[in-house]
């Protein structure tokens, strides 16, 4: 076991020395990986923030229940009781038609309000929901439909649903772009490793002649690929962290002007860990495929 680990340690040292020996190319490669991974990561960062905004809005979604104009006091009390019993309903507000009319009149032009002799508004309940689950809301609407005294029901949360669908679509697009960019990275890193195998052709040749297996020869190249990924991942994290810090500094200034307290939420730490792991995996996979193919293609010796 110790010998096995020592063998990997030696391979790592070889890979690291190749990484250092070509430090210019290595830095360029890390920057390429860093910036490439930054694009989908920044997209996810924006989506996460937009998602959180929509989560906050969710609880303010309302259903407006307009009652018949001829509804009685008993019927209103019955509807009120029915609504209070429903666990989906977070908040109930009853707006009598007279108060609604007064409010409307205060907002309308005097000429307009005086031209309307009778109060055209019905009594209404405005309820806030605990959920935006379409099935649950539909059930609630069905149950309200059967109650006497209710004229019409309007769901005011549709725009949030549209926003959420939009966000889901954007998220899907970001994943699609991320998949394409990962393929690009696999090709770019693979090509760099292929060039390295040509640079180290003599070493590969000698190693093969004295009994090295392809796995032994591939190992240092794979460690180089992992190091590229690690460096690229760190660059991605640095760019994202700096962007969040910069944005928040600007938002704080705006908050002091407009009085709003908006903060751009950073991604959770585990997400940054995923970025580094993903980058290292990309480096590992591309270098493995490239080194294996290149060594086989060199056809130095079997």
């Amino acid at each position: 076991m110790f010998n096995y680990l020592h063998n990997h340690y030696q391979a790592f040292l070889n890979g690291f020395s190749r990484f250092i020996n070509n430090i210019g190319a290595s830095v360029m490669m890390m920057i390429v990986i860093g910036i490439t991974l930054c694009l989908p990561s920044a997209g996810l960062l924006l989506i996460e923030n937009a998602g959180q905004i929509s989560q906050n809005i969710e609880h303010e979604a309302e259903i407006s229940i307009f009652l018949d104009r001829s509804v009685s006091k008993d019927q209103i009390d019955f509807i009120d009781l029915s609504l209070e019993k429903n666990s989906l309903i977070k908040k109930i507000h009853f707006e009598p038609k007279l108060i609604a009319w007064e409010k409307l009149q205060s907002k309308l032009d005097v000429a307009v309000s005086s031209s309307v002799s009778n109060n055209p508004l019905p009594d209404a309940f405005f309820i806030s929901l605990n959920t935006l689950d379409e099935i649950k809301i539909q059930k609630l609407l069905d149950s309200l439909d059967g109650i006497d005294g209710i004229d019409s029901v309007t769901v005011d949360g549709n725009w949030i649903k549209k926003l959420r669908i939009g966000l889901s679509l954007i998220k899907l697009s970001v994943f699609f772009i991320a998949a394409l960019l990962i393929i690009v990275l696999l090709v770019v890193i693979g090509n760099t490793i292929r060039l390295q195998t040509l640079t180290y052709k003599d070493e590969i040749e000698v190693s093969k002649l004295i009994g090295a297996t392809n796995a032994f020869i591939q190992r240092p190249f794979m460690y180089t690929g992992i190091l590229y990924g690690l460096g690229g991942g760190i660059i991605t994290i640095s760019i994202l962290k700096l962007s969040v810090l910069g944005l928040n500094a600007t938002l704080i200034k705006l908050a002091s002007i407009f009085g709003n307290n908006i903060i751009f939420q950073d991604l959770p730490h585990r997400f940054y860990l995923y970025i580094v792991i993903l980058a290292m995996l990309i480096g590992l996979i591309s270098s493995y495929i490239s080194a294996r193919n290149s060594i086989q293609r060199l056809k130095i010796y079997k």
């Binding site: 003599d202 070493e203 040749e205 000698v206 093969k208 002649l209 004295i210 009994g211 090295a212 297996t213 010796y301 079997k302």
Partner: peptide, 19 residues
């Protein structure tokens, strides 16, 4: 099996093949 076999030989070349 070739790598295992080659480990049983010591090979010396005209051009040394040193690293």
């Amino acid at each position: 099996e070739i790598p295992i076999l080659r480990r049983r030989f010591g090979m010396i070349f005209q051009d040394h093949k040193l690293l």
